[in-house]
């Protein structure tokens, strides 16, 4: 009986330790995920931003020390729980709107979004009109020059006479 009780106590202690260890591992994993954002999470925001000092280099692929600092700044702000929009706004406030890969939809920037489709539509309209003009039968366009006019009328006369002759023979 004593042995049975001892075995039972040992078993309970073992399970308690196992549970505690499992909980510890789980909490550590969750904690680690909360505090250290991955490179992918950082780059998802970094690729929407441009290096403020290099020309035309997205922040996620920029190899300079300065860009490394900015990526770390993004990681730090993500760890603090800031949203993507808040982080992008921080960059705009500090370094200007030029760091954004897409210009903000405000003021004159709207032209960037409106003009290209408008120009494409206008171009398509002009092409459509031109193709329609070109595809009209040439006869419609003829008759502009006196030589053409003369040539056409004599041809018509000849054809008319030919047709008349053929009719008469029938």
């Amino acid at each position: 009986m004593k042995q049975l009780l001892k075995n039972r106590t040992l078993r309970v202690t073992f399970y308690a330790f196992l549970l505690a260890a499992l909980m510890l591992v789980t909490f550590t994993t969750v904690f680690a995920q909360d505090t250290t954002p991955t490179d992918d999470e950082v780059n998802a925001i970094a690729k929407q931003l441009y290096c403020p000092v290099c020309e035309n280099t997205p922040l996620d692929v920029c190899p300079t020390e300065a860009c490394h600092q900015w990526r770390e700044l993004i990681r730090q702000q993500l760890a603090e729980g800031k949203t993507e929009e808040e982080i992008k706004q921080y960059f705009v406030d500090n370094y200007g709107a030029r760091v954004l890969s897409e210009p903000p939809r405000t003021g004159l920037n709207w032209l960037v979004y409106i003009l290209p489709p408008v120009l494409i539509l206008a171009g398509a309209f002009i092409l459509f009109r031109s193709f329609r003009e070109w595809s009209k039968p040439k006869a419609v366009e003829s008759g502009e020059g006196p030589e053409e006019e003369a040539g056409t009328s004599s041809d018509d006369e000849y054809i008319a006479r030919l047709e008349q002759e053929l009719k008469n023979r029938k």
Binding site: E133, E141, G143, S153
Partner: peptide, 10 residues
Amino acid sequence: MTETNTPNAP
């Protein structure tokens, strides 16, 4: 022979 058609140019 000038009675042939002289359509108005579009």
